[in-house]
C-alpha cells in the first residue's frame, strides 16, 4: 500500500451525504480481519449491495455502481466525513478500493489522522467550492480536478485553483515518505529522559 502522495488528477465520485460515519464506510462485520487487506469489497457495502452482501446484487443507483463513476479515484463527500468509530479499516477500505483522496467541507479528527497515515489525502474545501464541484460532476461525470499536495492547491474544473489546508507534518510525510514511527523512534533519548523525570504511578501488571 503506497503511503505517498504528490499530485493526482482524476474524476470524482459524488456522495452528497453529510456525516458519513465509519460504520457506513466499513461495517463492523469486516473488522475481524487481522491484516489490512481484503476490505475493498466491504467499502460502503450496506449502500452498495442489496442486504449489504458483496456477493449479492449491486444497488444500481449507488455512486460506486454507476458506470460513469467507475474510474473515479477521488471521493467528493458531504460535510463531517468519517465521523464515529476510530477504525483505521475505513481508510484501508477506501485505499483498497483505489481512492487516492477525499474532498469534503470537513472531516472528523480521527478519520483525518488515519487517512493521512495511509496515503489517502483529505482535502478540505469551502462550502462554495464543494457546491460547485457537486454541480460540475452532476453536469459532466468525467469532470476532473487536480490535487497538488506540494503546492497545496486543488485545480478546479474550467480553470482556476483553490488552496487547501493540510497538516504540515503529514504533508511532509506524504511528500518525502518520512516514516512517522521511525520519526518517533528517533526520539528515544528524549522519551527516556521524560520517563526518568516522570516515574509512572501505575503498573498494569499489579492487579
Amino acid at each position: 500500500m503506497s503511503k505517498s502522495f504528490t499530485r493526482f488528477t482524476g474524476s470524482m465520485a459524488p456522495l452528497p451525504i453529510q456525516n458519513v460515519d465509519t460504520d457506513q464506510i466499513i461495517p463492523a462485520s469486516y473488522l475481524k480481519v487481522t491484516d489490512r487487506s481484503g476490505l475493498a469489497s466491504g467499502l460502503f457495502s450496506r449502500w452498495r449491495y442489496r442486504d449489504g452482501d458483496p456477493e449479492g446484487e449491486p444497488i444500481a443507483d449507488f455512486v460506486l455502481n454507476r458506470p460513469e463513476h467507475g474510474d473515479a479515484r477521488i471521493l467528493l463527500a458531504g460535510d463531517n466525513f468519517g465521523c464515529g468509530s476510530s477504525r483505521e479499516h475505513a481508510p484501508w477500505a477506501l485505499v483498497g478500493y483505489g481512492f487516492r483522496a477525499v474532498i469534503s467541507t470537513s472531516f472528523a479528527d480521527i478519520f483525518r489522522s488515519n487517512a493521512l497515515k495511509n496515503g489517502l489525502l483529505v482535502v478540505p474545501v469551502t462550502e462554495d467550492v464543494s457546491a460547485s464541484l457537486f454541480d460540475a460532476v452532476a453536469a459532466d461525470p468525467a469532470t476532473e480536478v487536480t490535487i497538488d499536495l506540494k503546492a497545496r492547491t486543488l485545480g478546479l474544473p474550467g480553470g482556476g485553483e483553490t488552496n487547501f489546508e493540510v497538516d504540515p507534518f503529514a504533508r511532509r510525510c506524504l511528500l518525502d515518505g518520512t516514516d512517522q514511527l521511525g520519526y518517533l523512534l528517533n526520539q528515544a533519548p528524549s522519551i527516556q529522559a521524560f520517563e526518568a523525570a516522570h516515574p509512572a504511578r501505575l503498573d498494569t501488571r499489579s492487579a
Partner: peptide, 22 residues
C-alpha cells in the same frame, strides 16, 4: 482519546504519540 491502529503501533513501540494541540 481514541486513536487509529497506526497510532496503536506508535504507542506500543514508543509510548508516545505525535499530536497537534486541540
Amino acid at each position: 482519546f481514541g486513536i487509529g491502529t497506526s497510532e496503536v503501533g506508535h504507542v506500543l513501540a514508543t509510548q508516545c504519540l505525535l499530536q497537534h494541540r486541540p
